[in-house]
Nucleic acid binder design. Structure first.
Lengths: 338, 338
DNA sequence: TTCCTGACCTAGAACGTTCTAGTCCAAAGG
DNA sequence: CCTTTGGACTAGAACGTTCTAGGTCAGGAA
């Protein structure tokens, strides 16, 4: 049986010892060369490296992290369905790498609970866990925080032991309201996020800003998905005095709102203005150029990593609040008869 | 210094040896208990387990996988920006778990190349790699396949050593064309995928199906994103004889097409029908109920896992072609004057 | 008594790295 | 001549598991 076709050496990948044997040196020396640390002459360095390349040596990250006192691993949970989480994860990769850390990512989805995702990270022995938009209760957070340092992104922490990085939702929604009012709108409605993380702050921000401008604080129940936005808007268009502007809980919700309007041939922004929240890819996507409140993903990711490392270094847990900003694109404009 | 607040035992998580010491037994016995394998009495089993729980013991997956001959780990690369990949990953988790395997996921994004993602998986020593919608060249695939068994999902493999699971794109687009023609359309256009994986097959499927129905095989250049779809549609609406139906490369592209139409106050499906491809969450999302060609994510994921394990068991690489099916929702209907 | 059997448990060697504590040897300093 | 220095290299012990090859002990058979 002439087996071993070029494929599938999976079971028998070369190890440090294999390379060492081939080069006639100790494994320790090969390790030194592969890690690029001082302790080997240039000549051997080059020789060993070429032999390793030729054999197709790839270091075993598992063994390495097991041996090292610190795993230099940041665990991240994210929601597969949230476009904004995708943006965050991408930037977390680069931010972590900049500090010499690896990322272990663990997905949350309808069929995979946040709890399961966190457990997987714990088993990977990450030094710190970063939870994107966590929906865990305070008690669950507290319990988890006893097992691993915890940092929340895009969610406020009510728990002492947990750090967090999020933008100021009250202020963000305020910016949206300011923008709409400055365009001349007086009949604004907020399609809220229901029980989603952050929904309370955004609702509060809306009510506060409305008060500032002396307009009625009109809030209707919504939710974090397109469906929620569409449903809420469907209920609004038939009201006796429909709103001239909608502040949606987030971009997905806003997308739903836009769709409901479009399907009723109500023009945006001529008849109704709509503004989202997140500046996720949805905002610059299908509904072409949605106005929204931007949470800078790159900045958040950078703050998350430095915050996480600070926690590791023994720093006290703390809260980083970023300033969101308005991105006025093409779904907002003056009200009909202004 | 009274240190050690309840948080951050990260550096000093209890090990098997700690639990063993506390219980007054050997580490081997604790291992037996934690793995739930025969070799311990019910009494000790319960005692050890309760002690472990109390100490907050969590096994170190790294050490375990290092020791085990097979890592029982499936590596997966996916694109953070593709909603359909999210669906696939979710189902891969459950499919892998059903076979006693773990998943190591590694993201691809604009700032993180597929190559980097695959390297990370190799370092994790996964036994097999599953690449979702890979954009690697045949040469790159061949090279990677010499280091780890490879299975492509949602992409055809032209390379001998690589397995693949994908739906029949030619047939799928054919279904879309059949559907539209049966509704009465005769002026169909295909907004293609440019150089994206699978674009060739879908284009070919469109031309073939058009031929079957004796309608003109009209194809315009598009791409895989909303932007591409919107741009292509913008060019079409002003043509002397605009299409009555659009077959888009995928759902994102279709979303762009829809948006371009909506912005010009062209009603869907009254004036123009639009059909996507993928049945990703976009299809049931903002543009409420897009007609599309469904690639069953759960089925694909299941086939991917069994295909990957087959490869591991020494099976020959092979191609699994799934049958897509039509999901007629509300963006397709009869043409204007039919 | 003596031997077997099987249930329960343990010692110690892996796995592939990194790290600590060296050894060895040539060149420089006395 | 002997010592010191420091650069190049190595032996061997970790890291936290799992696995192999036992060991011990009670109870039943002879």
């Amino acid at each position: 049986m002439t087996d071993a076709p070029a494929r599938r050496p999976a079971a028998s990948r070369p190890t440090l010892a294999d390379v060492a044997r081939a080069a006639g040196v100790s494994t320790a020396l090969v390790s030194i060369v592969m890690r690029d640390v001082p302790g080997a002459s240039d000549a051997t360095r080059e020789r060993v490296r070429s032999i390793a390349d030729e054999m197709g040596y790839v270091r075993d990250e598992r063994a390495r992290k097991l041996r090292q006192s610190s795993s230099r691993l940041i665990g991240v949970t994210f929601d597969l369905q949230q476009a904004f989480h995708g943006d965050l994860v991408e930037h977390l990769y680069t931010a972590a790498a900049a500090h010499g850390y690896d990322l272990a990512i663990s997905a949350v989805a309808p069929s995979r609970s946040e709890d399961v995702a966190v457990q997987a990270l714990l088993r990977e022995r990450c030094e710190v866990a970063v939870l994107l938009g966590s929906a865990l209760s305070d008690d669950e957070l507290r319990a988890t925080a006893t097992r691993v340092p915890l940092l929340l992104v895009a969610r406020r922490s009510e728990v002492d032991d947990v750090s967090s990085v999020h933008s100021d939702d009250v202020e963000g929604v305020g910016l949206a309201v300011d923008h709409l009012v400055s365009l001349g709108h007086r009949r604004l409605v907020h399609v809220d996020g229901g029980t989603a993380p952050g929904a309370d702050d955004r609702r509060r921000g809306f009510v506060l800003a409305a008060g500032r401008h002396d307009v009625e604080p009109w809030v209707v129940p919504g939710g974090p998905t397109e469906h929620d936005g569409a449903r809420a808007m469907a209920g609004l268009v038939d009201s006796p005095a429909p709103p001239t502007a909608v502040v949606a809980f987030n971009d997905r919700c806003a997308a739903g709102v836009l769709d409901a309007l479009v399907r009723r041939r109500i023009d945006v922004p001529t008849d109704v203005s709509v503004i989202g929240y997140d500046d996720s890819r949805l905002a610059v996507g299908p509904h072409a150029q949605m106005s929204t409140i931007s949470q800078n993903a790159a900045e958040m990711a950078e703050c998350a990593v430095t915050g996480a490392l600070d926690l590791l270094a023994g720093g006290e847990p703390h809260e980083v609040v970023l300033t969101p900003h308005l991105v006025a694109r093409s779904t907002t404009g003056p009200p009909p008869q202004a």
